[in-house]
Design a protein around this nucleic acid. Structure first.
Lengths: 220, 220
DNA sequence: TATTCTCGTGAATATCCGTTCACACCTTGT
DNA sequence: ACAAGGTGTGAACGGATATTCACGAGAATA
């Protein structure tokens, strides 16, 4: 038996925690299940973390770190709004395929209430809301984006679509719902294509209404 | 003491159940709290319902009945797709204001998994998916809707936006998230207006791109 | 090798919740 | 007014879970 848990083991415990939280919800996830599935005893969880709440926060932070890495990668190279969207959709599709438990845990978090909900929302959504708001501001300045919509609500609708897409790939209820609408699980490429068309319309509609205007030299 | 619970009392019990399920989740909602808040004893719940699961199903059915009534009202008079959308948005806004617990309960249901998730999804989403698919088919036939998008995915994106809107009005986490994006709770009328613009673009973008001709087949 | 210290273990404890059932009250029929 | 049957009550039971802590197995030191 090791004297100290290795960093790999500690990470394994966090990943296991994410799986169990994703499956059972924050409240109903049994610490005993987490310990058993990670191959350690319950006691060790309480040696490394003050309590369940503290352990959950660590799981969330661990997950957010990997998500931030992903978003940073996507937005590292400058590009047009529509191309960003394409990259984002693809990145979220692959993240959903690789780490469905993380997405499911985020979904479980959305049922929290009260002050906790406010804190968690700003912790989880802060990153993407800042990112999308920035992208949309840039889009407006570069003329790639219509001007008759409030950037805040626009970013909100935009993220609603992306968030629901991830949930629909990972969470049983939303998966069933997507199959209901589409008559079966659609191909990733079809979703990418159709969602992009949907978004492209929203991005540029106003200017398309004025085909003679000035610089029609971007979209498509 | 009444010999039998009055219909009003029975309805009050169901409404209380919806509130408690909405607040605590399907699994964590205590039957004792429901009984206490409704002003009856725990025992009576088990006289009228076989168990918690059975009681929950009754709460859900009770709620879906009122939701169906609302949707039926909106779609009773024929209209254009965009006007339907406006009526839908308004109806959902007022339903969210009147019955936030119902929406919160639907949200709690979305965390269920396995076979239960599939059944609940088809029970709750079946109605709206059929409705939206029908509206979209009519829209395509009447020419009010672009033809280069799959109706299924289109209806799916459409409902994603409407569903997220309801959650954002009623559920703490989503409420905080919307405030994060919009810098405060936006006015109902602003949301209606902006979402309609967003949708209108998606409905008609393809045709706007081709202001002269009509049947350019499908784009790209 | 002997001793001490560090750290993981898992049985035990306290709490909470679904469900049951013996009881008491109210209604109804006579 | 009384008896009988129906109906709501809530204390009690069993199962589950967060958290603790006395213990023992390795590592470190000499």
């Amino acid at each position: 038996m090791l004297k100290k848990l290795s960093p790999e083991k500690l990470e394994e415990i966090l990943e296991t925690g994410i799986e169990i939280f994703a499956e059972n919800g924050l409240h109903a996830a049994p610490m005993a299940s987490i310990a058993r599935q990670a191959g350690v005893s319950v006691g060790v969880l309480y040696k490394y973390y003050a309590n369940k709440e503290d352990f959950f926060r660590s799981c969330l932070r661990h997950s957010l770190d990997s998500l931030e890495g992903l978003l940073r990668e996507v937005t590292s190279k400058e590009d047009k709004l529509l191309n960003y969207s394409r990259q984002l959709i693809r990145a979220l599709q692959s993240f959903s395929a690789l780490h469905p438990s993380h997405i499911r845990m985020y979904h479980q978090i959305t049922v929290s209430s009260g002050e906790a909900a406010r804190l968690l929302a700003s912790e989880i959504e802060g990153l993407s809301s800042r990112l999308y708001t920035r992208l949309i501001s840039q889009g407006r300045e570069s003329g790639a984006l219509r001007r008759d919509m409030e950037p805040g609500l626009f970013a909100f609708f935009f993220d609603n679509l992306l968030m629901m897409l991830q949930f629909s790939y990972c969470c049983d209820y939303y998966k069933a719902r997507m199959e209901l609408y589409c008559g079966g699980m659609p191909e990733d490429s079809a979703v990418e294509e159709q969602l992009l068309r949907f978004l492209e319309s929203a991005f540029t509609f106003e200017r398309s209404l004025v085909p003679h205007g000035d610089s029609r030299g971007e979209n498509r």
